[in-house]
């Protein structure tokens, strides 16, 4: 299996935060959702992949090229959408098209024009007149207009209304029709990730808590709701996290290791994230 992204024991130290021994792979043909609370290390991880910051240890390969080695050919095949639009806002869509045409050897002017028209971005208006959602759409249009093989999206759908988000998720799924394509998508909107992702990686305080196939995750994990007494009847090794509340307890458990007599609920990505973030081990 070939990987679009491969990280081995990646470490980055800051004064108040450490990204420790992060290892993960994103196979080609797959979408990986990167979830985690604010400050968990998602953006740091993305910056390391893009060589915007220097790591303190480990290895990162992006499209089979080490992240730290500049490769114009590799970068030409990466589409990046960050949490904000970083294109100077005194420009308009037509000028952005001209600039990108000169920057990307594989720029598809027609695709860009089609996407900006589809997103309803006025060609001659300055970007400064756009709403936040429109600016994000422009960044997405740029990322999708140069034969990218890998999309790295950092909160790309934040600030967009549900209808537009749905439309953009459809575009990402269209992009994935090519089996050599891959998407890494960091987002707080876990419902979006549930819709489109094949893999989920959950990062918490600089550690990867879990990284696995989304369907397996949602099938293997389950939520138990009951009393303390009932919880004691569940094998301790089946319990991943517990949240104690006023009227009982909730636990994130491994479905297969829990007796069928217990009623278990299917978890959501959001609930799993909350268990890891707020729950205790026992």
């Amino acid at each position: 299996m070939t990987y679009a992204l491969e990280l081995k024991n990646v470490t980055k130290n800051y004064t108040n935060f450490t990204l420790q021994n992060v290892s993960l792979v994103l196979p080609k043909g797959c979408i990986m959702g990167l979830i985690g609370e604010n400050g968990a290390g998602k953006s740091t991880l993305i910056k390391l992949m893009l060589n915007l910051i220097q790591r303190d240890g480990g290895e990162i390969d992006v499209l089979d090229v080490p992240a730290e080695a500049f490769s114009a050919e590799r970068n030409a095949h990466i589409g990046v959408v960050m949490d904000e639009c970083h294109i100077p806002d005194m420009l308009n869509v037509r000028q952005v098209n001209q600039i990108m045409q000169d920057i990307y050897p594989n720029w598809q002017s027609d695709v860009f024009k089609q996407l900006t028209a589809r997103f309803g971005l006025p060609e001659k208006s300055k970007i400064k007149t756009y709403s936040r959602g429109m600016k994000m759409k422009l960044s997405i249009a740029v990322a999708l207009s140069h034969h990218a093989q890998l999309l790295i999206l950092d909160e790309a759908t934040s600030g967009l209304d549900p209808v537009v988000r749905d439309e953009i998720l459809d575009i990402f799924l269209e992009f994935m029709q090519d089996e050599n394509h891959a998407i890494l998508m960091a987002s707080h909107i876990t419902s979006d990730l549930e819709k489109v992702c094949d893999y989920i990686t959950y990062i918490h305080k600089g550690h990867i808590e879990l990284s696995m196939e989304k369907d397996r995750l949602l099938e293997e994990y389950a939520i138990f709701k009951g009393s303390e007494e009932q919880l004691r009847d569940i094998a301790p090794e089946a319990i991943l996290r517990v949240r104690r509340q006023q009227f009982g307890v909730e636990a994130l458990v491994k479905r297969e290791q829990v007796n069928e007599a217990f009623v278990l609920e299917r978890p959501t990505l959001e609930s799993i994230m909350l268990f890891f973030n707020k729950g205790t081990k026992q």
């Binding site: 500049f70 114009a72 050919e73 970068n75 960050m82 970083h86 050897p105």
Partner: peptide, 19 residues
Amino acid sequence: SYDEFYHWDKYALTMPISR
């Protein structure tokens, strides 16, 4: 100054543009 304001460099370095 404009580049700093828009964080353009961070974005440009993800393109086929070397430092």
